[in-house]
């Protein structure tokens, strides 16, 4: 869905934001574009949207060049900017109606999105009087207008209080699942993204250090991972697993176990689970998450 091929972006004044960056993000994933401040995340988003022109290299989104076919790309993409740039002296309804008009979206569809995001009661208020959490919801609503296939969220939890952060991330996760869209979240706060992303692109000082499915990167860089096991005999399985040194933690859940392991021994672990499956008390196993912090540390030391 998104392909960067040797992309370089140099701004006026000679600042190089991206330097021969290559990565790809497939469709249907909830991806994280991870890196410290000033690493080129926002520039990457603007290149994806055709708001910036690459100095060298090629960007492709939906197989199109976004700088040349700007409208075709943008009409299929929703964007939540990092800073709340919305006109503060305009009511929520007026702002969202204007975006809906430009996107050729009916009033009914607009109100459906407003309801989905939970801001129906704020429509008549000026954006400037809302709390940061609600302004962020307005931003998510404007990004969802027109049912985009791709959603770009730039630091969606920046400057929010802890409760609002959890709410916004839950909302993003639910929307991505319910609407079946591809979402990319740019952030430098790794832990909060860990439970929700399944694909990551690590970026640092304009270079992509690595990218791929979280599970694949976990195995590649041998960091701890959490696997979700659906089973009936939770205590029996826990008793078996606890004896292995590579098992770092076990958590009992409603449907089975969440097991944190040292991925250097992933094959051995999977063999144990396979045996349990054959014995009939394990139904399935899936990769739940990995430590993004550990992954990032390994990639940073590598680069």
């Amino acid at each position: 869905m998104i392909v960067f091929n040797q992309v370089t972006k140099i701004f006026r004044g000679g600042v190089k934001a991206l330097d021969r960056t290559s990565f790809m993000i497939p469709s249907g994933v909830l991806a994280g574009l991870l890196g410290p401040n000033g690493s080129g995340k926002t520039t990457s988003f603007k290149l994806i949207l055709g708001l910036l022109k690459p100095s060298f290299g090629k960007v492709e989104v939906f197989g199109l060049d976004p700088w040349v076919r700007e409208l075709e790309v943008r009409m299929r993409t929703g964007y939540l900017p990092e800073k709340p740039l919305y006109p503060m002296d305009v009511s929520v309804e007026k702002f969202l109606s204007h975006i809906a008009k430009l996107r050729r979206v009916s009033k009914q569809d607009l109100y459906r999105i407003v309801k989905l995001v939970g801001i129906t009661h704020l429509l008549e208020k000026d954006i400037g009087v809302l709390s940061r959490g609600y302004i962020q919801r307005v931003g998510i609503a404007q990004a969802l207008i027109g049912d985009p296939e791709l959603l770009l969220l730039d630091e969606p939890t920046a400057n929010l209080d802890p409760l609002a952060r959890i709410e916004i991330l839950e909302l993003i996760k639910t929307l991505q699942k319910d609407l079946g869209l591809t979402a990319v979240i740019a952030t430098h706060i790794l832990p909060e993204l860990q439970p929700i992303v399944d694909y990551v692109v690590f970026i640092s000082r304009g270079h992509v250090t690595d990218y791929g499915y979280l599970e694949d990167l976990t195995k590649k860089y041998l960091v701890e991972a959490v696997y979700q096991i659906r089973c009936s005999g939770t205590r029996k399985l826990a008793k078996i697993l606890i004896d292995y040194d590579f098992v770092k933690a076990i958590e009992i859940t409603d449907t089975g176990l969440n097991v944190k392991i040292d991925t250097r021994y992933v094959d051995e672990f999977l063999k144990v689970i396979e045996d349990a499956k054959r014995a009939g008390y394990v139904y399935s196993i899936s990769h739940l998450t990995s430590s993004l912090g550990d992954l990032y540390a390994k990639l940073a030391s590598k680069s």
Binding site: K46, L49, L51, E70, L71, R74, M75, T77, G78, Y79, P81, K83, L85, Y86, P87, H98, I99, L102, R103, R104, Q142, I145, G146
Partner: peptide, 15 residues
């Protein structure tokens, strides 16, 4: 300069 223009461009306006 603030980047607000991006909101309207992303919504479907051309430059």
């Amino acid at each position: 300069t603030s980047g607000r223009m991006a909101l309207y461009l992303v919504a479907g306006l051309t430059r």
